[in-house]
Design a protein around this nucleic acid. Structure first.
Lengths: 236, 236
DNA sequence: CCAAAAGTGTTAAGCATACACCCATGC
DNA sequence: GCATGGGTGTATGCTTAACACTTTTGG
């Protein structure tokens, strides 16, 4: 008997999957992948990988994302681990799911196409393999939770953005409409935004002022690695 | 090459660990276990097991709890998965952590002793092995989150309890004091409690009225399996 | 009668909600 | 000059927070 191991006959594969949200200033999107291999060849799925022996969970998810996007410092958070007995018909696989938020403008279309990947509007998702739809469902619910006490704009908006764009983001996440006066009041009262004199005229003749996050907010945020906390950003 | 498997050389052990909270009407407690085997023999740790091939994650956690307590229907929730490379010096182990809430009065002392287990006051915990302290830290933070929109009394209090006891529970969880007038106002305004004519005189000469959860609240709660939601029970 | 815990109301401040019109501009 | 989206203020109700005294009763 091998005394240096806890067990010798475990026969379980561990995988990492990533739910990738993007925002294109109009709607919330999800990045999906067309499977190139059996089983489920040609079906849409989240992107994932079998966990390597000498890579930590976080690192594995980070690697998947950076291989895919070429980007560093993508927002990533562990969502949940899925381990029902027959979730994968081929063998026993447990899947540790991460979710990430990225600005659609940061990700080149070519990169996406190289992977047989496609952005889908969040409310027009195709059927996904295995329990991936459940993972997505759990992710949006987590996203709403996070949005309650964290300014998601960091991750999902370009450096400068307009208040209508920010409002659209929150409306997408919560799938509802907000009164623009109340929205602006609340956002501005948080004291985390800095108005510029620049205007974005891409969506109206009048143009909308561009805002950015205040320097110190950005700094605090990066120090804490994704846990900048304004107590209550939104309580919808 | 074995085409029916995703990978053939993964060498990772999957374990389940459980963080067990209890409340004895005075303080919040954590159930810890003295390791009987090497490594770390004699040290305190959470209870855990290597995942069996044909048991789902939830089932495994449920089994651990019911073997330990003899109780069914214990509140259990997946917390997070820990998978740093060298979290266990012996071999690569990833640990899926669940946390559970139980009424201390439900658990016989004998049961606990049979397992070399002991209730520790939450603010007087010993050092724990591996990353178990981190797991506990993450658990209390999750517990606070849950307490915000879910009446924890279901899990941590006996069927009948007094408002001072309930207040103590919340004070323990949030490690703070509340004004009793405001506390009672808020709790009672939720309309989930039913006053009885019984009094608990164990802690005062005057005695405190015993309350229970309303029938329909209990029913709803059980249907949803631990997700009864009063929107905002507490927003501290 | 006294000690110890239970129970009770009011006020002020802050926050969320509801609601409608003017502004700037390109065409 | 008009269509389009951007920008603004006020009043109301609700929730929270702060605060101190009376009640009960066993010893």
């Amino acid at each position: 008997m091998d005394n240096s191991r806890y067990i010798s006959n475990q026969n379980i594969t561990v995988a990492i999957d990533c739910v990738i949200f993007g925002f294109d200033l109009k709607k919330l999107n999800l990045l999906l992948f067309k499977r190139r291999v059996s089983p489920f060849k040609g079906s849409w799925s989240l992107i994932g990988e079998v966990l390597e022996n000498n890579i930590s969970l976080n690192q594995s998810a980070t690697d998947i994302l950076s291989k895919l996007t070429g980007l560093e410092n993508i927002y990533l958070k562990q969502l949940k681990t899925y381990g029902a007995l027959n979730r994968d018909p081929q063998e026993r696989v447990i899947s540790i799911v991460y979710f990430s938020l990225i600005r659609v403008d940061k990700l080149s279309l070519k990169m996406v196409e190289n992977y047989d990947a496609k952005w889908f509007a969040f409310n027009e998702l195709p059927e996904l393999i295995l329990d991936h739809s459940q993972m997505v469902k759990d992710s949006i619910s987590e996203l709403r939770n996070i949005a309650k006490d964290q300014p998601l704009g960091f991750e999902l908006l370009p450096k400068l953005f307009t208040l209508p764009q920010l409002q659209t983001l929150y409306e997408c996440i919560y799938n509802t409409k907000f009164d623009s006066r109340n929205f602006r009041k609340k956002i501005l009262s948080l004291n985390i935004l800095e108005k510029t004199n620049l205007k974005d005229k891409s969506t109206s003749r009048k143009g909308a002022y561009l805002f950015g996050f205040k320097e110190n907010v950005l700094n605090n945020y990066q120090k804490d690695e994704g846990t900048y906390n304004t107590k209550d950003v939104f309580q919808f």
